[in-house]
Design a protein around this nucleic acid. Sequence first.
RNA 1: GGAGAAAUACCCAAGCGGUUGAAGGGGUCGGUCUUGAAAACCGAUAGUAGGUGCAAGCCUAGCGAGAGUUCGAAUCUCUCUUUCUCCGCCA
Length: 426
Amino acid sequence: MNDLNYILNNKEHVQELLKRKLYDCNLDELVDLVAKKRKLQQITETNKAEQNKLSKSVPQVKKAGGDVQEIFAKVKALSNENKENEENLKDLETKINKIVFALPNLPDEDLLGGGKENNKPIYIFKEQPKFDFPIKDHVELAESLGLIDYQRAAKIAGNGAWIYTGLGARLEWALINFFISEHIKDGFTFILPPHLLNYESGFTAGQFPKFEQDVFVLNDFNPERFLLPTAETALVNLHRNEILGDSELPKKYFAYTPCYRKEAGSYRTEERGMIRGYQFNKVEMVEYTKEDDSDRAFEELVGKAKSLVEKLGLHYRVSKLAAGDCSHSMARTYDIEVYLPSMNIYKEVSSVSNARAYQARRGMIRYKDEEGKIHYCHTLNGSGLATSRVFPAILEQFQQKDGSVLVPEVLQPFMGGIKVLKPIKK
RNA sequence: GGAGAAAUACCCAAGCGGUUGAAGGGGUCGGUCUUGAAAACCGAUAGUAGGUGCAAGCCUAGCGAGAGUUCGAAUCUCUCUUUCUCCGCCA
């Protein structure tokens, strides 16, 4: 949610910024609605003040033996008038909220407008790996090495699923353990949140009301709950409706959870194997900061995500996303994209974003400065990392001529010292 | 899943239709006393959201959430949520 007064005072600029985010809107209606609402609010509140004053005088008048009926009639009249005003007010507010809640975050000024095509790689690690033999894709490798069972996954779950088996499960778990140990080293607080969250959490993170179709909603609950699409949704709600102390910030969290996503209408044929499923594992980092500290935190999170991929030894790049490719709630996003030789493309393993005060405003996440003044926090999040993209990248980038795959050194301690994954005989 | 109880400010807690936006206690902050501290005493102490104003301030909302009854609701009614106790079931 954006600052309403800022929108009102900078209408043209806001429209222009949102256009960079490929969100075309005319805010005239909003400005008009807010003006109407504030005017009506003034009238209603003045009435209400009068009504309260009269009501309060009843006991004294009664005691003095005065006529109370006259006051009753007056208050009743005011009350009726106000009832109508209040209904109109509520109506106006609903209309205003509908517009404001749906507005995306404003992109940072330095971002290029437009979509994916304007993303800019700003950092590259290592060279593209060269192979002097015909390479296999990760699906072939995962199957020949006995790491993933796609057939049985379809049997027991349906499409968009896979099963980690044996060493595959151990490799997956080693990745998660490696990430966790790095974050602990960096002083981040480990959180294991619930996977079923309530509507308010979805609203604060920015999933609702606009992206309800992307998550699994469970209507057996009253009120409904949903499966978290990323641990960010949980972490960013930890301090919802709270006022943090000045000295508590920055707060640094990370969590491991599976992420559940509908991904309606996804690129199924192109993305076979484990690139896109209904469920994938991810370790997620979230920071809460003061307003003037979020740029620092952003660099920190990008740096952390980079260092994880680097320690694994994978060739990757960092892309600065164009405004239109940043997600709805975010002012700025850098993607860490790992190279998949079989497809000759770079796939996101981490997305680091600064939401600035957008989520904090939705969830009333605030802090009190030394002078006792209340401010909105800034929230940032970054994957650290999503395993379902790292796993294939490891298989593909580290494959050998004999069909085996080298296990990155940093993972070996988490895999009982296994250094090579060898093809299994069928 | 069944039965019951509860939700009031930083914490505990009174209030059960009207000078209550809230007694009392604790805490916290300031002061007196003291060489200093403790104790005692005195004083202060709703945070928040929205509106309005250059500002001091003022107005509105707000006693778990929402709706209702009433001239008037923390107080009465309904719905929901959460917590606790007991029973059942269970990792």
